[in-house]
């Protein structure tokens, strides 16, 4: 019998992997992909809560979440392209002009 904890543990594993990608990788495109991974893990847990609590709020929230993720990717890649045009690099450690 599948319980909500199966889905929560899967979502938690994917979330941890995504956080590891964001914190550990240098390539900014991989960082954005890891962000997508995090979005997806949250979507799994929302859909699982929605199903096991027999409520529709989680499902609707997943739809909003996917919309926000699409907007985020569009803006993020636009920023990435314009940064690459100026700096010719995608290494996050080279992009530190605004560091205190």
């Amino acid at each position: 019998m599948l319980t909500i904890f199966h889905y929560l543990i899967l979502s938690f594993l994917l979330f941890s992997i995504g956080v590891a990608g964001v914190l550990l990788r240098r390539n900014i495109i991989i960082v954005l992909m890891s962000l997508e991974l995090i979005f997806n893990s949250v979507n799994i847990s929302l859909a699982a809560f929605s199903y096991y609590l027999q409520s529709l709020n989680g499902t609707v929230f997943v739809i909003f979440n996917i919309t926000v993720a699409a907007a985020e990717v569009a803006i993020g890649l636009a920023i990435l392209v314009s940064v690459y045009r100026v700096r010719k690099t995608v290494n996050v450690e080279d992009l530190d002009e605004m560091r205190y």
Binding site: L23, N27, E36, V81, V90
Partner: peptide, 24 residues
Amino acid sequence: VMVLFLFAVMVLDIGKEKTKEFIH
């Protein structure tokens, strides 16, 4: 989204990371 990602990878011409060090 993934087509957008692949498009960005293609436009930016990143390919394989040259350095052995890809860890932050």
